[in-house]
């Protein structure tokens, strides 16, 4: 399954989770993104912001291996990516739950794909469901759940197979503001309990500053890396209190300026 990681590469704590070097993506003569160079550190919470259509999602697709490019290189833990990267979890705002499967069966799906023994699947699925607070809803069908709960099912499904990177593409884009803040709190808790790297794409500056260790600002098309800002606000962070932190306002201004002089 993890053929993407070659044996002859030694991975240390300093090996970047992902290194994009001079990567650009073209569709014909149209340059969609890049050239861009970016290192994603192991276990960090990296947020990518930028105007619509700047190639934020393209970067995630490159990391997931669903999109390949011949210009530049993409390394995952030091090894070049070949084909689909099964060591990532990809969560978007789209509902990818299978409607004919219950919550529990949806969470089981990636483990069934990996042909784990049934007993182990059952345990792991139950643990993942508990971790996102969906215990009691195991036998419900996606149709019966609200948007926030569906998002939790998708998170639990990713959690179940414990990928080394979570790729999150505006996962809470369709949720209302209050629920979104709830989800931020839970996502940060989750990030702290797993040993995984989170790469989160959004165009919401509040969301970016609340969650990130580092915020990457991309320019308009063709998307390039314009600025990288370290968010020096100690953790654990409170999703409400952080907004009145003086540093929050300063970061907001920096990022806003970087985004608007495009």
């Amino acid at each position: 399954m993890m053929a993407a990681v070659a044996d002859d590469v030694t991975v240390t704590e300093l090996t970047p989770e992902f290194s994009f070097t001079d990567v650009s993506v073209r569709f014909g003569s149209f340059v969609a993104m890049g050239p861009a160079t970016l290192e994603v550190r192991q276990r960090e919470f990296l947020v990518i912001i930028g105007p619509s259509g700047c190639g934020k999602s393209t970067l995630l697709n490159l990391a997931a291996g669903t999109l390949q490019t011949r210009t530049g290189s993409v390394l995952h833990r030091g090894a070049p990516l070949r084909g689909i990267n099964h060591d990532v979890g990809y969560i978007t705002q789209k509902n990818y739950c299978l409607p004919w499967r219950t919550v529990e069966a949806n969470v089981r799906l990636p483990l069934e794909f990996r042909r784990w023994p049934a007993a182990k699947i059952k345990l792991r699925a139950a643990a993942a469901i508990a971790q996102v607070g969906l215990t009691g809803f195991e036998n419900a069908y996606p149709k019966q759940l609200s948007g926030g709960m569906l998002q939790r099912v998708l998170i639990a499904r990713t959690l179940a197979y414990n990928p080394s990177t979570y790729l999150l593409d505006e996962p809470f884009g369709s949720l209302d503001a209050q629920l979104r803040m709830h989800m931020h709190r839970e996502l940060m808790r989750l990030w702290q309990t797993t040993a995984s790297t989170f790469v989160f794409v959004t165009h919401d500056l509040h969301e970016a500053i609340t969650l990130a260790d580092r915020v990457v600002v991309m320019s308009g098309r063709p998307g390039r890396i314009k600025l990288i800002v370290d968010i020096d606000i100690p953790r654990p962070r409170d999703v409400v209190d952080i907004q009145s932190d003086p540093r929050f306002g300063a970061y907001f201004k920096t990022l806003w300026t970087a985004l608007s002089d495009d």
């Binding site: 399954m1 997931a64 789209k94 990818y96 197979y161």
Partner: peptide, 11 residues
């Protein structure tokens, strides 16, 4: 998309 998502999940 459901299919490509499943492929991503390791199907």
């Amino acid at each position: 998309d459901l299919v490509s998502n499943a492929r991503l999940l390791g199907a």
